[in-house]
Design a protein around this nucleic acid. Structure first.
Lengths: 346, 346
DNA sequence: CTTCCCCTTATAAACGTTTCCATAGATGGT
DNA sequence: ACCATCTATGGAAACGTTTATAAGGGGAAG
């Protein structure tokens, strides 16, 4: 099974390689009769194009490099799926680099320096592969400014924060604000919050939203209703207990991720507090399991698929030279109503 | 910022392009002094290699095509992560094709025919990109034999079933057998089972394991203890209720995925049956949330990372021409003990 | 019957590398 | 002093395409 290229086709069809190329790409008119003949030979010889050669000449690979800081982080696959949807439409291919952040440096981002060289390598490799552009999928809590240098290959960031570079990101602050507004409209006034780690950007932004809403709706601001968690279930459990042991416990609780919210549920159960009758609970992330818990918890959905899709669209705009219109409006987070919130009746 | 290639380096360093290539790859001895000079120019001009050209000449892309039937299916990212770990070690790159099976044809695999052309396209594209090999990540319940034709590009399948092709897959039957054995050793004899859809291969295999174990340990075989579910939470809930309403309900229950197991928990709670005191429960998949439920459920872990890793290793063996030793031993599933099983005391 | 133009097809250069082969100079054994 | 080796380097072909340019032939217009 010898390699059959355009040359072999040309020989067998008694035309020049140029002609074969023209029928292959429709770049130029070719007499129907000739075309037919060439096509037949292509069929016969089971010609398979070689995009490497094509790319070399045309300086276009139709390939986008996707760098994921960690593909096993729960939200990332859906973002990639969004990227894929767009890529499919435009016949683009994805070369995926998984930086495996967590497996390499664990969950402590302080020694992130050691990680930088992986990121840099990934970029070099991608550039060597002549990708037409790069999408960098962070893992949310980090500002990633200056981490890598893509030269003049277009890049867009998503699911992370940047200073000057374009980053496709939903609005954390708004999301959190909306959650509080929802609770407020259900009649709740004393609303507690369990944040994530406070050196994490989304944590701060979400807290901002909480604070803004509390202010806008003239809710009492009581520091003892604010608890700083660490994103883990145990922390949700412990802090919720503390909240419930208050002399005057809150009637509602916003927890900044679903994992901690699962902890809240456990705490409530252990103390005989009923959710939602005695305590309304809203989570964050709309993780699949939030629907499996008991009660099914009301939580804030993140527009992940759209973020992926938008990143791709932005990137292609930049590649197309339209840098100005690259910024994208990402759909808002929407609250998924389930069973963990009840209106407050006095 | 003109493109700087090997040619520009050669000119500026007063050597031939051949020499530049030799210092770049260390393919040949070059006088230290010359080497130095070339390296300096490379540095100065910020030379970035072009792997496209390299691949064209060398007929090696160092790229593996990964076709995922659906990257949003929960187990897939971890498999990819395993692939990545191996790829990193050997400086291989991944071009990822996500077939988006569920978003395209939903969860009803009967109209899978329409899906075939996506798979075929994916393969053609990958071949055009001259990948050195292909890994096909299915989504488990399907036999994928004959779906695609990779020509003579090496391929290995994983997380799906095949007839003659090499597929890296853990042992469903064994896993299920082990779960029953575990329950048996905890003193349980009347063990019920909730299967998945019975047109799914893992469902049948797992049932096989159950049946074998029941036979080996001389447990009573009572058909009313066998329920056929559909993988969804509601089905777990409903069937568990039926089981618990039996005149003589089982003391233990093996549920063939964690989602249905979440349903079982809900059923038990709604009927005032305590887990594990009144009913021992073991799930399947070791989904992250199985640790968040109440009680935390004991479940069967799948060696996903290893499957990815092994797939890659097998593939590289085939690429290296060692077809015989390509088959891999995939680590067994291991049961993760948590809180949902208690020993039976009479 | 020229002349011009258009339509179709061919020739060959180019893309950025690797690598085979050749060459020039140095070394060393006789 | 000569030939055989050996080392360091250069020249050029090749990988499979695309595409600029050229060329041949036919028809319409003069």
């Amino acid at each position: 099974m010898d390699k059959v290229g355009i040359k072999e086709i040309a020989a067998k069809a008694n035309v020049s390689i140029a002609t074969v190329s023209y029928v292959l790409n429709g770049t130029r008119n070719v007499r129907p009769q000739t075309k037919e003949r060439v096509l037949k030979v292509i069929e016969e010889l089971k010609y398979k194009p070689n995009n490497i050669a094509k790319s070399l000449k045309s300086k276009k690979t139709n390939t986008i490099g996707v760098i994921a800081e960690d593909i096993t982080v729960f939200n990332v696959p859906e973002i990639i799926d969004g990227i894929n949807e767009y890529a499919d439409r435009y016949d683009l291919h994805i070369v995926l680099t998984n930086l495996r952040l967590h497996k390499r440096v664990g969950h402590n981002y302080s020694n992130i320096g050691a990680f930088r060289k992986y990121a840099e390598n990934a970029v070099s490799d991608l550039l060597a592969k002549q990708v037409d552009g790069i999408i960098y999928i962070g893992i949310h809590p980090r500002d990633v400014t200056g981490l890598i240098d893509p030269g003049d290959t277009p890049i867009v960031y998503t699911y992370c924060y940047t200073k000057n570079e374009l980053s496709i990101q939903y609005n954390d602050e708004q999301a959190s604000y909306d959650a509080i507004e929802y609770l407020y409209k259900k009649g709740h006034h004393r609303i507690a919050v369990i944040t994530g780690l406070m050196d994490s950007i989304p944590s701060r932004l979400r807290f901002n939203g909480y604070f803004k809403a509390v202010t806008d709706f003239e809710l009492p601001f009581e520091p003892q209703l604010i608890k700083v968690g660490n994103w883990g279930l145990e922390s949700g459990l412990k802090l919720t207990k503390e909240l419930l042991e208050l002399a005057d416990p809150p009637t509602a609780l916003l927890v900044m991720n679903d994992v901690m919210a699962a902890g809240s549920l456990r705490a409530a159960r252990s103390m005989g507090v009923r959710v939602p009758e005695d305590l309304s609970l809203v989570g964050f992330d709309n993780r699949e399991f939030s629907d499996y818990l008991n009660p099914r918890i009301t939580t804030m959905n993140l527009p992940l698929h759209e973020m992926g899709y938008s990143s791709m669209r932005s990137l292609l705009r930049i590649i197309g030279g339209d840098e100005e219109h690259a910024a994208e409006q990402v759909p808002l987070c929407v609250l998924i109503e389930r069973e963990s919130v009840a209106p407050l009746v006095d």
